[in-house]
């Protein structure tokens, strides 16, 4: 059984005419040890969903099971204990301004009733983990956003949880800081064997660290699966829009007035073939020329991934052979103009 199981989850806000259905029957399972991302635009219900995982929101109907325990069936005291086994970080960090960094990290342990003899060494250990040892006696107001989130992470890990919930944890940070926080999350996940559930509206966050992703819209999960799969073969329009936010599929050659001379094709580079000199082989093997008009190569979970737009010039037969060659390498090709 998966570590987190969600079945038929619904949640409504308000009543009568003003009723908003935030969740309309969500099924989801998160395996132990993975980083699971939920992406959606604001209002899609992702925030409500993650808050149902520790019952900061009480679901309308449906069940949430965490580590074999039915969360939706717990009484208040049991719920508090269950929450102590989950860490959570927030978009706006939510640090206590009246406490130092040390005081903030110690907070969940004080809540759990641990003694100061246990708390002190643990705080030092956690501050080392997030690289903030020198800020131990500083108040949050004196920290940068990235440092605040590091404190948030240290605090979330204080009671050695199995699960880390990230509620738009990088949305208030600049791209560079986002990168370093994501790297930290990935690192602690590996080191501590955590399971991470994160919600975001940024596709970059998903491609950077998530193993699996669910795309949410209007209170429902419209698409889900391993990130590579969803990313390379998006089925739902919303998913496609998110993918395009990271890798542009727009044909910009038009803008600078390029007139295609042969076949205009978009090639998706993914998997092992992306590491091969595919284009130069294409040119060498067949009587074609490839004019690269646009390209964007990055990586997705440590694998090269990219999109290039080429104008394939040559005899129709040669062009067809060249395209067949690409297909044989399992590289998805999309023909835009001048079908071979």
């Amino acid at each position: 059984m998966a570590l987190i199981e969600i079945k038929g989850l619904t949640k409504d806000y308000g009543r009568g005419d003003r009723e908003v259905r935030a969740l309309r029957g969500v099924d989801l399972s998160v395996e132990a040890g993975e980083i699971f991302g939920v992406i959606g635009l604001s209002g899609a219900g992702k925030s409500t969903l993650i808050r149902c995982l520790n019952r900061l929101e009480t679901p309308g109907s449906g069940t949430v099971t965490v580590d074999g325990r039915l969360l939706t069936g717990l009484n208040e005291a049991e719920l508090r204990l269950a929450r102590q086994e989950m860490g959570m970080i927030f978009q706006h960090f939510n640090l206590l301004s009246s406490r130092t960094v040390t005081g903030n990290v110690a907070f969940p342990m004080e809540i759990a009733g641990r003694g100061s003899g246990e708390i002190k060494p643990r705080v030092a250990e956690l501050l080392d983990l997030v690289g903030l040892r020198d800020k131990a006696q500083v108040y949050p107001a004196q920290l940068s956003g990235g440092q605040k989130q590091r404190v948030g992470i240290a605090r979330a890990l204080a009671n050695s949880p199995k699960i880390l919930l990230c509620d738009e944890a990088t949305s208030a940070l600049d791209p560079q800081t986002t990168q370093s926080i994501l790297a930290l999350i990935q690192d602690i996940k590996e080191r501590l064997g955590l399971t991470v559930v994160l919600i975001t509206h940024e596709m970059r966050v998903i491609t950077e660290i998530c193993d699996r992703v669910a795309v949410m819209e209007d209170g429902l999960i419209v698409e889900s699966g391993p990130v590579i799969e969803v990313f390379t073969r998006p089925r739902h329009p919303t998913t496609r829009a998110f993918v395009e936010s990271v890798i542009s599929r727009e044909d910009s050659s038009r803008k600078w007035g390029y007139q295609p001379r042969g076949t205009l094709a978009r090639i998706l580079f993914i998997g092992p073939a992306a590491g091969e000199p595919v284009i130069s082989r294409l040119v060498r093997l067949f009587k074609v020329e490839a004019n690269i008009l646009q390209g964007d190569i990055g990586h997705l979970q440590g694998q090269p991934f990219g999109v290039i737009l080429i104008d394939l010039v040559g005899e129709p037969a040669a062009r067809r052979q060249a395209l067949d060659y690409l297909e044989s390498l399992n590289l998805p090709v999309e023909l835009l103009e001048g079908a071979a």
Partner: peptide
Amino acid sequence: GLIEAAQAYGA
């Protein structure tokens, strides 16, 4: 948010 964070930690 602070109250929520405390709740999330089981306060």
